[in-house]
Amino acid sequence: MYSDKVMDHFSNPRNVGEIENADGVGQVGNAKCGDIMRMYIKVDNDIITDVKFKTFGCGAAVATSSMATELIKGKPISEALKLTNKAVIEALDGLPPVKVHCSVLAEEAIKAAIKDYYDKNGIAHDIEAPGCSCDSCCGSCEVH
């Protein structure tokens, strides 16, 4: 059972799409596992001025992507990096236990996009390449 908030973000997802000439793009997940998230960010003066996502996945995957973009839009990068999957779950009024990995993917997708932005601009960082949150399914997730 999904909360009303999850259903709202699934049926009217915020920030769907792509950003042309994005400053950072991050993709996590694997079609084999049934979830792929790709995040695009536009950065101006260390502020995430715009964010968009594309997601292949279940209702929770779409809703966590949507909520995660809402939570980081207009925020400084330092703050976006602190976003946890727990915060995404709380903002959605909870997720069924089997769907928690979707929120982890959302957190990782954001980190992957910021890492891409840092790498492209030669900014030193200590963001590790996001791991795979769904190893219990196939153990072969690709991180781009």
Binding site: S11, G57, C58, K99
Partner: peptide
């Protein structure tokens, strides 16, 4: 699962063999 949820929003009850 997304397909099932979105069909439901349009009044159609169906099911899926997706993991989710």
């Amino acid at each position: 699962e997304s397909l099932i949820l979105m069909l439901d929003l349009n009044g159609v009850c169906a099911s899926s063999g997706s993991a989710c």
